[in-house]
Simulated scan of single mutants.
Amino acid sequence: MLVSNLRGGDMAELAAAGAGESPVIELRNVSKSFGEVRSLSGISFKVNRREIVGLLGDNGSGKSTLVKVVMGFHNPDPGGEIYFHGERMDGWSVARARSLGIETVYQERALAEKQPIWRNMFMGRELRTRLGLLDVNQMRAESARLMSEHMGFTSAAVHPDNVVATMSGGEKQGVAITRALYFEAELVILDEPTMGLSLSETKKTLDFVRSIKAAGKSAIFIDHNIFNVYPVVDRLYVLDRGKVAGVYNRSEISMDSLIDRLYHVARTGTLE
């Protein structure tokens, strides 16, 4: 599992942070430019433990760039800082972020659709016997347990040997999310997970999103559709033209009020 793969320094950072309540991830004064184009400007952003944070914004608002900074794909411009469990992260990279338990579930789901569920669940992280051989029986058994306990599949017709292509869009998202949680993800990034899904599949996917928090983990939920994001998040960030246009606790703002503010931001670029 991921925790066992952490370097000594990283383990010390996590242990030191365990006694406090520092955010899982925090960005301070993060900007990002590509040549003359400034995609992010002075962003402050954080995700607390056991928190689902929504990230809303139109195309070009900076959502993708912000998430790629969190993932380690982009480094902030000078002056920007990244903290993980309260410790400043230097040398931030995709490998470092993943070693600390940051996993991304893409809208394409990154699944091998012609392969069975158990192969997808352990893709790239296969369980092995003491002789170094693939432990197929253990991977099938673990997949069956995860499907029952975390994905809610109780029918005998749904089996770890089922090919992923036969599953619905929501069920495929469930495989991807469950895989991330099994490998000890601290923070799951959900990149428009409901795109192209039917109403019933969207409901199932949102239930899987709720299961992330129930498992004691955190998530960033990126989407254009406020009607999907609002019901499952604790806080929402609204981005506009590379800046944070608003941060809201869901418990303190109704969906109607939030929609009004989003319309205003889209027209003016400000909340005032």
Rank of each mutant, 00 (worst) to 15 (best):
I102Y: 07
R140P: 00
E252S: 13
A144G: 10
F84E: 07
N59D: 07
G86S: 06
S143H: 06
V163R: 04
E201F: 05
R261C: 01
A165R: 11
G269I: 04
K63Y: 10
E108W: 08
S254G: 07
R130T: 06
S4F: 13
R7M: 09
E13V: 09
E26V: 11
G54F: 00
R125T: 03
G42H: 10
F183P: 05
Y182C: 06
M151E: 02
S198C: 01
M151K: 04
V232L: 07
G91Y: 09
N75P: 02
R128H: 13
F73R: 09
L206H: 07
P78C: 01
H150D: 14
N29Y: 10
A141L: 13
L100D: 02
P78K: 04
G60L: 15
E108D: 15
A156N: 13
L236E: 02
G269T: 08
Y83M: 11
V238T: 00
R28P: 04
I52A: 01
V3H: 14
E186N: 08
I259G: 00
M195C: 00
S251I: 03
S143N: 13
E126M: 02
V24H: 13
R128M: 13
S64K: 02
L40K: 06
D260H: 14
V247F: 12
V175Y: 03
V30A: 10
D223H: 08
N5Y: 14
T178Q: 06
S218Q: 05
N59C: 08
P231R: 02
R7G: 13
A176R: 05
V47G: 04
S41A: 09
P76Y: 07
Q138H: 14
M1A: 15
S211I: 05
N225K: 02
G80V: 05
A16D: 10
A16K: 14
F208Y: 15
A141I: 08
S200D: 12
M123T: 05
R128P: 06
K172M: 05
G170P: 07
R109E: 11
G9P: 06
S44T: 09
E201I: 06
E184H: 14
P78G: 06
A12C: 11
P160Y: 09
F221S: 00
G246D: 09
G57C: 12
N249I: 06
G80T: 12
M71Y: 05
L133Q: 11
F84S: 05
A215L: 09
S198E: 00
M167S: 02
D223S: 14
S4I: 07
S155P: 01
E108Y: 11
E21P: 03
L55G: 06
L181I: 12
V209Y: 07
R96P: 01
I82A: 06
F227Q: 10
Y263L: 14
K217D: 08
